[in-house]
Amino acid sequence: MDTELNYLELVTKDIRFTDCYKTCMNCGICSAICPAAHVYDYKPRELYSIIQRGSNSEIKTMLSSDIIWECGQCLSCKPRCPRNNIPGVLVQILRKVSQQTGLYKQSTKGIAQKEIVRSIGKNIYATGYCISPDALIPSDHPELGPVWEWTYENREDLYPRLGSPYKKETIGSVRAIPSKTITELQMIFELTNGTDFLNTIMEGESWQ
C-alpha cells in the first residue's frame, strides 16, 4: 500500500516557513519584478496559491514540476511584497523538500540538480571553493569568450603575475586551502547531513 507522504507538513515545518509565508493576496507585485516571471511560465505567487489551497496532491504535483526550479534567487521580490512574503525563501524550502523526497526527479529542471552536485558540490568538498579556475573548462563555457580561453591556458603564469599565490597555501586569491581546513569542512558536511543530502540527490552515484 502506498502511504502518501504529507508534503504539506514537510513544507510547513521547515523553520523558515513562518518567516517567508504570510498570506498572499495575489496582487502580482512579485511577478511584476521577478526576472524569471518574464522569461518562464512562472509566477512566484502561484507557489503561495497552491499552498494556501492546502491540497497535498497539488503540493506533490508542484514539488514534481519545473515551476519550483525557475526562480533565480535574486530576492527582488522581498522588499516589495505588501504582506512580507518572501517567495525566494519559500522556493528554497520547496526545493529542499523536493530533493529530500525524490520528487525532483520527476521534472527536467529538477533532475539537473545532479549536474550542480557534480560541479559545484564536488568543488566545495574538494577545494573549499564553490568555483575555481580549473573547473571552468573553456569548451564547457564558450560564452566566457576567447580571453577566458587564454586565461585558462595560461593560468599558471597569469594568476601569479597578478599577485595570486596560485594553489600555494599562502594568503591571497586562488590559494590552496590547507588540508586541515578541508577536513574540518568535510566534517561539518558529515555532521550536518550535508554529505547525505548530496548523496541523496546523486542517488548513490559517486560525485566526490
Binding site: 523558515r16 552536485v117 558540490g121 586551502i177 550536518t192 550535508g194 548530496l198
Partner: peptide
Amino acid sequence: VNHTSCTGIGFHTDIVPLETTMAV
C-alpha cells in the same frame, strides 16, 4: 589562510543544506 567559501553558491543552488551553510 584557513578561511573557506561561505558556500553561498551551493546554498542558492539548493545543494548545500541550511544547517551546513550555517556551520561553515
